[in-house]
Design a protein around this nucleic acid. Structure first.
Lengths: 201, 201
DNA sequence: CGTCGGTTTGAATATACTCAAAGCCCGTGG
DNA sequence: CCACGGGCTTTGAGTATATTCAAACCGACG
């Protein structure tokens, strides 16, 4: 296992490059960002402490499908492909477990695909916020705070809308007391209100 | 293993129900369709002969995330969960292989998510057609024919747009000689032309 | 021959994107 | 300590884009 420190904004691995290692965040967090040939990009997921990333292409075509960018100064762990396969060979259970993890991610992505095609921007934004809270939220004074440094742009690229509509929606919700933002930290005050806006279960 | 015949339009399994078996199409084809609480639906994938479906939730929460609908009269195979697990236990390679399959699907879904957020309807439609051709196309007189019964509505719900814009785009492309439709069969005449429209690689 | 599923087309409208500009906050350096 | 600059956010106005709805059309099948 290799340990590595990265600074905010550093590229942990780059889209299109060869996949040679399995990664995990120990402290800090990262964004997984895919860029199209037109230059526009979408955030596929946020990685928090304890989560693995970049693992899947080791089992497929060994091409990294997206960038991994440190969203904060972070500490990153990684394993070589050989180590990972050895481990699986010795403990088949690990493979079944990995299937479950992939399956869950697959399910989430499928939902996201449906949401992107059937919901409007405002609803998708609300869902994005709720989802991030579920993934990286912790109880704080005044609500559920998302433990990720989120710019408007991040929320936008994660929910499939633009910086501007994201800003307008979040500002409106802040005014309405549904959530609060402070120093890049987002706190949800009224989750059920947001769920009502999302209107999708 | 169980064998089953289904008619066009039959529900093979229904969204929200318990996942108890792994499925595959022997002959014919099926649509995997997810419906939101607002009633609007998205086609997640088309299943052709030889492809498995409904397998993932066996490894996760045992809840089916979508409907499987026969798009033609089809012959459907299925295995019980116990059989599948026994098989994996005996041949760990199967699990690794399954991981690869899931990984590929995951990669495709991620691309779709990006496309839905960054491309316009016309580009997404072109990509949808190209993707279906890659999955289920066969060489025929005058081009590459997609071996699936595709209504405009299917193309629309697969590419995240409406029946109407899909109709307009396909009609225009037909006029321009890029493709042809006949009896629910879609034939691509000028793939590179479509790729140029998709403009995404 | 009538009906039904599917397609096409037009016109009106909503939706959210684009671009431009100003404001704000914070850290940096003079 | 204050001024400056850069990243980020907010807001407005105009506009592209695709959706919605309605209606006509077409072909297949019973």
């Amino acid at each position: 296992m290799r340990v590595q420190r990265v600074a905010k904004g550093d590229v942990i691995f780059a889209q299109g490059g060869p996949a040679a290692r399995a990664w995990a965040i120990s402290t800090g967090c990262a964004r997984i960002v895919q860029t199209g040939s037109n230059g526009r990009q979408a955030i596929l997921r946020f990685i928090g402490p304890g989560q693995m990333f970049g693992t899947v292409p080791l089992f497929t075509d060994h091409r990294l499908p997206a960038d991994a960018i440190a969203a904060q100064a972070s500490s990153v762990l990684s394993w070589s492909e050989a180590d990972l396969l050895r481990l699986i060979d010795r403990h088949p259970r690990i493979a079944v477990n990995l299937i479950a993890v992939l399956g869950t991610r697959l399910g989430h992505l499928q939902e996201r695909v449906r949401e992107l095609t059937t919901l409007r921007a405002e609803q998708r934004l609300a869902l994005a916020v709720l989802r991030l809270a579920a993934q990286a939220g912790r109880e704080t004074a005044g609500g559920h705070t998302i433990g990720l440094p989120l710019r408007r742009r991040d929320v936008a690229e994660f929910s499939g809308t633009t910086l501007y509509t994201a800003s307008r929606a979040l500002a409106a919700w802040q005014k309405a007391g549904l959530l609060a933002t402070c120093r890049g930290q987002l706190t949800i005050c009224d989750a059920s209100g947001l769920r009502r806006i999302a209107g999708d279960g």
